[in-house]
Design a protein around this nucleic acid. Structure first.
Lengths: 161, 161
DNA sequence: CAGCCATAGTTGCGTACTCAAGTGTAGCGC
DNA sequence: GCGCTACACTTGAGTACGCAACTATGGCTG
C-alpha cells in the first residue's frame, strides 16, 4: 500500500535543506538584483559567464548549458539582454548555424555594478555562514553533483575555431 | 570601474556549484515526476508535507512557508491538486480566515506511488554521491542557510486550536 | 461598541521559463 | 550533385510562479 510509508529518512534531510535553501536564497537574490539593477539572477549569471569567456563571447548553446537552461530559454533571455544593449549577436564565419552572444561595453559596466549587489547578497546569505574550510568542503561536496542529464562537462570552449 | 573585476574568488565556487547543481537536479526530478505521475516537484513536496502533518492537513500559509512559495503561489498550486482530487479544502471553525489543505485518500495513494519515482531519483542524483557521514555533514552545513527573509522557522504547527 | 491594524486568502497581470514543432545549415554516404 | 541525419537556433503555446491590490476576518484599544 505504501500509505503510511512516505519515508523522510535521515539521509534525505540534506536533500530537503538543499531544496528549501536554494528556493529561499535565489528568491531573495533575484529580488535584490531586480530591484537595484533590473536583472534576473540568470541574466546576471549569463553576463558573468560572458565576462570570463575568451573575447567576452560564447556560443548560445554553450551558454545555455552553463546556466542550465534550454536552447529556447537562452534565446529569450538573450533577447532581453540584447534589447537592453548588454550583449549583442555575432555570427560565426566558419559555421553559419552558430551565433555568439557577445558582451558589450555597456554590459560589462552593468555587470560591474550589479556584481556589488550580488556579491554582497551572496556573502550575506551564503558565504558568511561558513568558515573558509567549510566553504572548501562544501564546494567539493556540491561539485560532485550532476550538472546535466549527461553530467558534468566543465569545458566546452572549442566553439568553431 | 570594476571592469576587469567581476571576481570569481575561491569562496564563490561552492555558491556556483550550488546554483548549477540545484537547477540541473530539480529539472531532472521535476521532469521525472511530470512524466510518470503528472506532478510538479512542488506538488510532490506539498503532498509530502501534508502526509507528515497532524490529520494530514495544514494551513495554506504554513504550507507556503514549508515549500518556499508565496501565498498566491500556494493558492494556484493547490488549485491544481484540488482539481485532481488529491487534496481538499477545509475551513477552520475557530478562525474563519484560515482554510486548510487536507490530503485525501486519493492524494495519499498518489503520493505513495510518486514517492517511488522521486526517492529513486533523489537517490540516484543526490544521495548516492555521498557517504553516510558526508550526508550528515552536508545536512548540517545546508541547514544553516536561511529559509526565508525572516530565517528559519521550523515549527509553526499551532494553527488555530 | 467603533475604529484600526494585522493576518489569511484570492485575483489580475506580468514574466521566465519549458516543450514541441519549425527553419536553415553542416557533414555524411552514394 | 542528391538525399539524410545531426545540429544551432527560433517560434508558438502553455505553465508556474511573483508582486501588488483586493476582500474578509480577527484581535486590540479606547
Amino acid at each position: 500500500m505504501a500509505v503510511a510509508a512516505i519515508p523522510a529518512p535521515r539521509q534525505l534531510e540534506s536533500w530537503v535543506s538543499f531544496l528549501r535553501a536554494h528556493a529561499a536564497i535565489t528568491r531573495e537574490l533575484s529580488a535584490q538584483l531586480q530591484r537595484e539593477h533590473d536583472l534576473t539572477l540568470n541574466d546576471y549569471e549569463v553576463l558573468l559567464h560572458l565576462s570570463h569567456a575568451e573575447d567576452g563571447r560564447m556560443r548560445r548553446v554553450d551558454l545555455a548549458e552553463r546556466v542550465v537552461l534550454t536552447a529556447s530559454g537562452i534565446t529569450r533571455l538573450l533577447e532581453g539582454l540584447e534589447r537592453a544593449g548588454y550583449v549583442c549577436k555575432e555570427s560565426c564565419a566558419a559555421d553559419a548555424r552558430v551565433s555568439y552572444a557577445a558582451l558589450t561595453d555597456k554590459g560589462r559596466k552593468k555587470l560591474g555594478s550589479a556584481a556589488e549587489t550580488h556579491l554582497r547578497g551572496v556573502d550575506e546569505l551564503f558565504v558568511s555562514r561558513y568558515s573558509g574550510s567549510e566553504l572548501t568542503a562544501l564546494a567539493e561536496l556540491l561539485g560532485r553533483l550532476p550538472v546535466t542529464g549527461a553530467d558534468c562537462k566543465p569545458e566546452s570552449d572549442t566553439p568553431c575555431s
